[in-house]
């Protein structure tokens, strides 16, 4: 078990290094002078002086290897430098906004699990039945609606037509808890519905597969109640693959939440990121993406460890 843990942590760290290297080298492999490229907007080129300044600021005048090592070292200390647009600290901006993004994701993930695991289990147990038909059909439809479309339609229905929920915005929890939660509902539900389509599909397939195994028949033959058979011998086994998928999806969610936040004007990482992309503020974009990738790798590390606790055979492989 310890060997397994160490191996997994080592893999995660190696992944992190690869990701950092790729992010770093993207700027290096861009044809032409990166400083010039970042300052060119809509065909017009920047002044010689501005380019020279930016080159100095980003350290682009130093040898590549030195740049690379500095980048890695700074990243390890969460020192992402300053924005090339307004000179503010990138690390501070991320520290301010990341928790808001994580809040949406956490709320959405909890809702999604509550919704899709029971539904997926029931659909899998009664595959081919009416419940399965309705939920699977609904699922196929929901899968086809991109998150930002769902969000836009929700705003129209719940904020404009029914007027029961705010169309978007953000108030700090400390300032007004009730309103904070009210504003959290639509973004969280949007994220949850999107995520639950995938969890539902996976749970259903996994339950469908597990229920046909010999040990389920053994459990029934022992005289366990149906509920126990389902819980301990179908669902427990089915959860492993589901958890892995949830882990992968949470990572992808870190990205697609950008759109949901944008739709609802939720000032998480997305606002920062979209503005930075528009202004071609490469250091900021790079820092956000590195942070998200690190979180993603971290989540998957946790998921792998969880999975190995659920299924003792994993640690042996």
């Amino acid at each position: 078990m310890l060997a397994f843990l160490l191996r997994r942590v080592a893999t995660a760290l190696a992944m992190l290094l690869v990701v950092g290297t790729i992010i770093f080298s993207m700027l290096a492999i861009v044809p032409g002078d990166p400083a010039e490229l970042l300052l060119s907007t809509g065909g017009g080129s920047a002044s010689e002086e501005a380019i020279r300044n930016l080159r100095l600021e980003m350290g682009l005048d130093r040898p590549l290897l030195q740049q690379y090592l500095t980048f890695l070292g700074d990243s390890l200390r969460f020192d992402f430098g300053t924005s090339i647009v307004d000179g503010s600290s990138i690390a501070e901006a991320i520290a301010l906004r990341l928790p808001r993004t994580l809040e949406i994701i956490a709320a959405g993930a909890v809702l999604a699990l509550l919704l899709s695991i029971p539904a997926g289990t029931l659909a899998g147990l009664r595959a081919g039945g009416r419940f399965d038909g309705i939920t699977s059909g609904l699922n196929a439809l929901l899968t086809s609606i991109p998150g930002f479309v769902l969000g836009t339609l929700f705003i129209y229905v719940f904020a404009q037509v029914l007027g029961v929920l705010p169309a978007g915005g953000y108030v700090a929890f400390a300032e007004d808890p009730a309103q904070h939660l009210q504003m959290l509902i639509l973004p969280a539900v949007t994220v949850a519905l999107h995520l639950s389509t995938i969890i539902f599909r996976m749970t259903r397939a996994s339950v469908l597969e597990m229920r046909g195994h010999d040990w389920v028949r053994t459990a029934t033959a022992k005289g366990l109640s149906r509920g126990l058979v389902v819980r301990r011998h179908i669902l427990r086994n089915a959860l492993g693959p589901v958890i892995t998928v949830v882990g992968l999806q949470l990572g992808i969610l870190l990205g697609s939440t950008v759109l949901v936040e944008f739709v609802y004007n939720w000032p998480g990482l997305s606002g920062l990121l979209v503005t930075a992309v528009e202004q071609r503020d490469y250091p900021t974009v790079r820092a956000i993406i590195l942070t998200v990738a690190a979180i993603f790798i971290g989540i998957n590390l946790v998921i792998d460890i969880l999975y190995s606790l659920l299924d003792p055979r994993i640690a042996l492989q």
Binding site: L248, V258, V277, Y282, V285
Partner: peptide, 16 residues
């Protein structure tokens, strides 16, 4: 897979 797809896209859009 480590890069959420939309983020990788945004990274490239920043550059190009």
């Amino acid at each position: 897979l480590c890069f959420p797809p939309i983020l990788l896209a945004l990274l490239v859009v920043t550059l190009f």
